[in-house]
Design a protein around this nucleic acid. Sequence first.
RNA 1: GGCGUUAUGGUGUAACUGGUUAACACGUCGCCCUCUCAAGGCGAAGAGUCCGGGUUCGAGCCCCGGUAACGCUACCA
Length: 496
Amino acid sequence: MNPEPNPNTSSSTPIRVRIAPSPTGDPHVGTAYIGLLNYLYAKQRGGQFVLRIEDTDRARFVATSEQMIFDALHWLGLTWDEGPDIGGPYGPYRQSERTEIYREHVQLLLANGSAYRSFETAEELEAMRQSQLAAKLPPRYNGAHRELTPAQIAGFEAEGRASVIRLKVPAEGETTFRDELRGDIKFSHTNVDDQILLKSDGFPTYHLANVVDDHLMRITDVIRAEEWISSTPKHVLLYRAFGWDLPRFWHMPLLRNLDKSKISKRKNPVSLIYYRQAGFLPGAMLNFLGLMGGGMPAGTEKNDGAEIFTLPKMLEQFTFDRISLGGPVFDLVKLKWLNGMYLRALSPEEFQQQLREVVFSDHYLAQVGALVQDRIETLAQFGDVTGFFFRDDVQPAPEVFLPKKRTLEETLVFAAEQLTALEASDWTLEALDPTLRALGEAKQWAVKENFMLLRAILTGSTQSPPLLESLVVFGKARTLDRVRRFLEAQKKTGKR
RNA sequence: GGCGUUAUGGUGUAACUGGUUAACACGUCGCCCUCUCAAGGCGAAGAGUCCGGGUUCGAGCCCCGGUAACGCUACCA
């Protein structure tokens, strides 16, 4: 069956698109990428660009994340027309404030028979999955509660069992939808699971919230990452169950690591906070993201500068049907080249201004100063003791970082564990101290060895201002990057 | 394993409706400039377009069959 033409997306209705990041950590470079694409699409067509916060996963929720997302998008200059901070006619724009809406809608589905209650516990489902996997079967919900009688439901309720609500995917047939970049994509219903729509905690899953919100917010074009293709049939089924028109779907290629896997913090800096603090200019970042997947006319003459373009130029020339579908590698080397081009194009005044804002901000200088005021005798020594705060590449030699009683191998293993622990830690003195001490204790590393190793990695030296205070001032994003680069560099020299 | 998507030098992209030696940028190497390092200029190497068939006078572009990579396969998004 082909998707029916959609009056909602005819040329007369205003284009509306959205990005819907989850506040689960640092703002992600992938959010910026999809954000840029949505922004371009809307602005080229006189449409609206909506920011919606998808905070339905209470387990992964990070309180500070939402503000960081706002800040990062503002930094890039991708301004939204409606969002949680500025409101708009279709709010609220934070899903946690819309739970009542989802519950009402799910009742509609229950009433018309396209969804059902299911009473298995998470443990039971996990056991089922494991046995299916063991039997080499595709892990899928077995449909045990698809046709429960009112009496059975009452029985489960009397037991006090919690329930979830699942989508009742037709047993037969298939769902076809159009991807604007790839054409029709078909999924047999035997491969579409009875997706949970409403969790037992009363929060919706992505699939439900997304479809309901996109409809209610009058989204005409869903421009999102390729990883969503497999779940699109569920969304189409939901639109149909509600009796709603479909938006257009555009699935963008996924940004990749050098090894072609989906971009991840293990293998690449992915936090926009990092890029900002490491001194990348927003224009260069946007330019680089615009290069990922094509979209801009390519250069043909030598040195015609076709690779360098600003946001206004993208607005003018970017075309969606030119997007290439292979997953582009996020190549830091080229990003740095581009950033260098942007830096050189700055006037001396602007360049100085950037230095003052990013690497020599009053705030940063004050914090660094506080750490060393007692440790120097002349102001000129400031640089001697704080150099690592202002450097990008710090690589300690083995005689600096290697503890006397440890082998290189066990030291690197421990450094990797430090990295993992630091990633998970809040970035305060109070959190970092116990985190590092607990790790040392667990792995039998003396506090002295433990801290000294990290000090060497961070500062390149065995002498420095207090370690934990220095970490806090230097910042989480750049610290993690520094440790990662240390490990990478050691891995490379080890191979040689 | 199942399903889906994708496939052009190391990387990002180009090649109008099939039409000369597959182009541009990054990176690499060399030369020039230069007190050094960058930047800049000039040049070179590097792919015969995932593989195998087919259609055609002619295929990176069309058809068939493989393969590989990636994604999804959660009460995560």
